[in-house]
Amino acid sequence: MEAAAAALKPVINVAAICGSLRKASYNRGLLRAAMKLSTESIEGMKINYIDISPLPLINTDLEVDGTYPPVVEAFRQKILEADSILFASPEYNYSVATPLKNAIDWSSRPPNVWAGKPAAIISSGGGFGGGRAQYHLRQIGVFLDLHFINKPEFFLNAFQPPAKFDIEGNLIDADAEERIKKVLLALQAFTLLHKGKC
């Protein structure tokens, strides 16, 4: 009976997007940790990493008869099919990174595939841990009709001792992992509420 109940538990599909293209990016490390947590300790959540590096710089000259380049169409479809979005947003010059803004802009072209999606943000960096970029991303989300969870927030100063990441950019801080888990649980609950399944 318990197995049957577990089988009926709705599974939400989360699209995970990292704003940094660097392989050892700390923000990408946060997403790897989130994916591991979702597999090992959060029932009913599947996180799929979506690579934004193949996307060309946005240029409406590439739009032909209402269609987009194949790589853009594929990216947009993945966003459309996701139940919710998990952004890992580095901070560049007090704002979101160019690759992330580019991905956002491509998917906001008609029809806007971000519209109505629940979302959460995690970030790592110096100082405020990417907080300014998060606030800019939330502002962008207003126009996109993204619905961000308000709490818990997750900012991580990557450079304040003790070390938070290993040399390959993997998260090694247990407290940070627990905080990411709380973000994921909040995103899961908000997504299910949004979908009318709880």
Score class of each variant (00 low, 15 high):
Tyr49Lys: 04
Asn157Gln: 04
Asn13Gln: 13
Leu30Ile: 08
Glu73Cys: 06
Ala120Ser: 03
Leu193Glu: 15
Ala186His: 06
Pro162Ile: 06
Lys151Glu: 14
Leu156Pro: 09
Lys182Phe: 12
Ala34Met: 03
Lys78Phe: 07
Asp145Gln: 15
Arg28Trp: 10
Ala82Trp: 03
Ala15Arg: 02
Ala133Gly: 00
Ser25Asn: 02
Arg138Val: 12
Ile140Cys: 09
Ile79Gly: 03
Ile104Asp: 04
Ala115His: 05
Leu185Glu: 14
Thr67Met: 07
Val113Glu: 03
Thr60Leu: 12
Asn59Ser: 05
Asp105Pro: 06
Lys36Met: 13
Gly130Ser: 00
Ala88Arg: 04
Met35Ile: 15
Asp65Leu: 00
Ile121Ala: 05
Pro10Asn: 07
Asn13Arg: 12
Tyr135Ser: 15
Ser84Trp: 01
Lys78Arg: 12
Phe128Gly: 15
Ile52Lys: 05
Asn27Leu: 11
Pro90Gln: 03
Leu37Thr: 15
Phe155Asn: 14
Pro10Cys: 05
Ile167Tyr: 15
Pro110Lys: 13
Lys195Ala: 09
Ser107Asp: 02
Lys23Cys: 05
Arg22Glu: 07
Gly127Arg: 04
Gln134Val: 04
Glu153Phe: 10
Met1Tyr: 11
Ser41Arg: 14
Lys9Ala: 14
Gly116Glu: 04
Cys198Tyr: 14
Tyr68Met: 09
Ser124Leu: 04
Glu40Asp: 13
Asn170Ala: 11
Asn102Gln: 00
Lys78Asp: 07
Tyr68Ala: 03
Ala119Cys: 08
Glu2Leu: 13
Glu91Tyr: 01
Leu55Gly: 00
Asn112Ser: 00
Cys198Ala: 15
Asn157Cys: 06
Asn93Met: 02
Val71Met: 01
Ala74Tyr: 07
Gly131Met: 03
Lys151Val: 15
Met45Lys: 03
Val72Gln: 06
Leu55Asn: 01
Arg32Phe: 14
Ser20Glu: 08
Ala5Tyr: 10
Ser107Ala: 15
Pro54Arg: 01
Ala163Pro: 14
Phe128Tyr: 13
Leu86Tyr: 02
Leu8Ile: 14
Ile149Lys: 00
Lys23Met: 12
Cys198Asp: 15
Ser89Trp: 04
Lys101Gln: 10
Ala6Lys: 14
Ser53Gln: 08
Lys195Asp: 02
Gly169Asp: 11
Arg32Cys: 14
Ala97His: 09
Phe148Gly: 02
His136Arg: 12
Met45Thr: 08
Ser41Asp: 13
Gly44Leu: 01
Ile12Ala: 01
Ala158Val: 10
Leu184Ser: 00
Leu55Trp: 04
Leu185Val: 15
Gly196Ala: 05
Pro152Arg: 05
Cys18Ser: 14
